[in-house]
Nucleic acid binder design. Structure first.
Lengths: 218, 218
DNA sequence: CCAGTACTTCTTGTATACAAAACTATTGAC
DNA sequence: GTCAATAGTTTTGTATACAAGAAGTACTGG
């Protein structure tokens, strides 16, 4: 029963941090949250510890747990690492990907294209996620897949914002094609480069991200 | 006082897992460890949770915490990710490394060379670690540095074994030179490739690792 | 003699109570 | 009037007590 409860609470707390109920710097009041969730402080503290380990909150001894949203610099750094992790997935996947996985990628891309045509951001977002998950899986390295998924999840709220900018979906879509082509050709270097470019926050994507951060702060 | 105690216990527990006091599959008995550390179960459970998050133990609900040493496959996978992370550090460091950091790398290499000449494994190990930490830092990406350091720490016990094989120190040393040369030339691709090769477990290194795992199992 | 079930015991998970530290507010002094 | 110090309150950290589930054992039936 323990893991279950602490896990559920951790998940819900995570959600509360992501959806903005708690802003950067807010203190997570143990007693308040405990009675809100209808549990005692013990499982709630365990949940908070988990959030701390995943970096969402900072634990200051004898002071409490404070929500710690990444600032611009940290965010850029995280996207840079995400780009390198995805590049690594691509490099390995180019050697190891199966025909069925390739077919699944092409399928996801078809649905992505349809979403672009319809201007359907939500569907695009979902299929895009599926696309990347398949790439992670196709690296043939379960540990890498796990690490990539972890960071992907962490960056979720910030990635979503990016898609709202004009023309981003179409560009992203074109990059997906390049990635699939490289993977199909078993070209490790090309696949790695394509994925790195696709994920990296550079040029106008950088300015878009900064702009969205500024908006979120208000 | 809390973080302090739980942190200390987590560290000591980690040590106990690393130095073989606990083997793969052993259950971490809360009450036994609690009285051994002279604390109650509460802080000890928090420490165990941390180990679980870092992957050293597996938490099975209502069953307890079990030491989870990586098997051969998982180990290979982790080294593969380490190689990619270090390659990423190299790629970025080639563009961002400072002259003082380059000098520090050369200094570490000098001490490494001396250790090779003396056949001093311990000193080599220490300087080798310093070398890699400088590379991480020189990536100019604090998040990447943190992630690389985390995995590096996790693989520590397995890396150490590797150095004991004949000729490994000399070969590793030569690779260090190649890395520094690439970084000094600001050649991102060369630096990435050199670091990837240096860390990757391939060829005879693979067989060495398998052999050492077999030894450890007995 | 073996297998299945019930019971006992041990262990985990959760709540609560207690201690220590930090923050706050109030009072007094300069 | 402002600053500082102290007392009180709030909150974290830890211990302990209690509840529930799992595992092992013993007993009974086939």
């Amino acid at each position: 029963m323990e893991q279950r409860r602490a896990d559920r609470i951790a998940e819900q707390l995570e959600e509360l941090v992501f959806d903005g109920t708690f802003s950067d710097g807010d203190r997570l009041d143990e007693v308040r949250l405990a009675e809100q969730f209808g549990v005692s402080r013990t499982p709630l503290r365990e949940a908070i510890q988990r959030l701390a380990l995943s970096g969402l909150v900072e634990l200051i001894p004898r002071r409490g747990a404070f929500v710690r949203q990444p600032g611009p610099v940290e965010l850029i750094e995280m996207f840079e690492v995400m780009a390198e992790l995805e590049a690594a997935c691509g490099r390995l996947a180019a050697m190891r990907i199966t025909d069925t996985a390739l077919a699944a990628l092409r399928d996801a891309n078809t649905l992505c294209q349809r979403a672009v045509d319809d201007g359907d951001t939500d569907t695009y977002y979902a299929e895009n996620e599926r696309f990347h998950k398949i790439v992670y899986r196709s690296s043939g390295n379960a540990f890498l897949e796990q690490e990539a998924t972890r960071l992907h999840k962490r960056l979720k709220p910030f990635r979503r914002v990016q898609l709202r900018f004009r023309g981003r979906m179409a560009q992203s879509m074109a990059e997906h094609e390049t990635i699939v082509t490289a993977l199909a050709a078993a070209d490790s270097e090309a696949a790695a480069a394509a994925l790195r470019t696709h994920v990296a926050v550079q040029g106008e994507k950088f300015h878009n991200l900064m702009a969205s951060l500024r908006d979120a702060a208000e």
